[in-house]
Amino acid sequence: MAGGNAGGGHRSPSEPSERIGIADRDGVVGVIMLAPAVIYVLALVAIPFLLAIALSLSDATVGNPGIHHFVGLANFISVVREAAFVFALRNSIIITAATLVLLTILTILQVELLARNFTGKRIAEILLILPWAMPVALAAVGWLWLLDSEFSPIDWILRAVGLLGPGTPLGPANNLYYLGREWLGIGAVVVINVWRTLPLSTIIVLAGRTAIPNELFEQAELDGAGYFRTLLQITLPALGTLLIVAILFTVLVIFGDMTVVALTTRGGPGYTTEILPYWAYLKGIQGGALSQGAAIALFLFPVLLAASILALRMAYRSEGQ
């Protein structure tokens, strides 16, 4: 029995059994250790989630957020019928998928770069981590300037090299109007998402990359393996689990986040860059239809759940191999 003989060498068998402290009780210790996590999950995940379900089935408004009257699935039916829903669902998936692809490629490239020694590596590391440390508001100002419809420096460079303006491949307009066009707007949101999530995914994967024994790479070099063969047969398989963690994290961050769209396109032109989280906010908080906003937000749940289950399965499978 746990604790039965703790310090027993100093105690005769005839002595009454020693006092058992809380720290000696596995059950109690387990509960205490788990409690913060359970409280956290209950308070910040389970209760809000159940509340969101209840709200989505009610006729609650921002002025009367209490759940007094249930209306069944009326809110879900109502939002699905709106034109914005198709755009929001489509764009949420496209933006997340495109961000993932771009992010994975750039993460691998960046990790491969930082795994090597070169002059100015420290400065490169600081620059690469900078987007993560930059306040969102400051970043937004910078990106809005870069993508400005009239004064974008990107447009200025394109004009200077003869790619933009009358009679040029991207002309005849003098500006590209990044946020005023459907696919340029979506592209801009993807680029900003990649920019802000790249540092974290790089740090996660870099930790795994530096843990791969150097002997493996040396042996591969001796065996005459080229860069891509080493990358595909040694580096990436060894990084599999961490890449999946990075991908899972990115899906959770990007699919459920509205910041970038809110600061740039705000869903326009029309609904063409609308995404589910921003539409839920617009409808539920700005518009006042709290129950419909909750219904929209719940459409995020199955996608996030499926992505989580899939990623975890792959991670476990990878560990088992």
Binding site: A173, N175, Y178, L179, G180, G185, T265, G268
Partner: peptide, 21 residues
Amino acid sequence: ETPEVFSWNAASNNQAFVSGR
């Protein structure tokens, strides 16, 4: 007009006018 009017915020038309655009 140009496609910029699809991406304006509440300050954009002010800025466009004051900057002569």
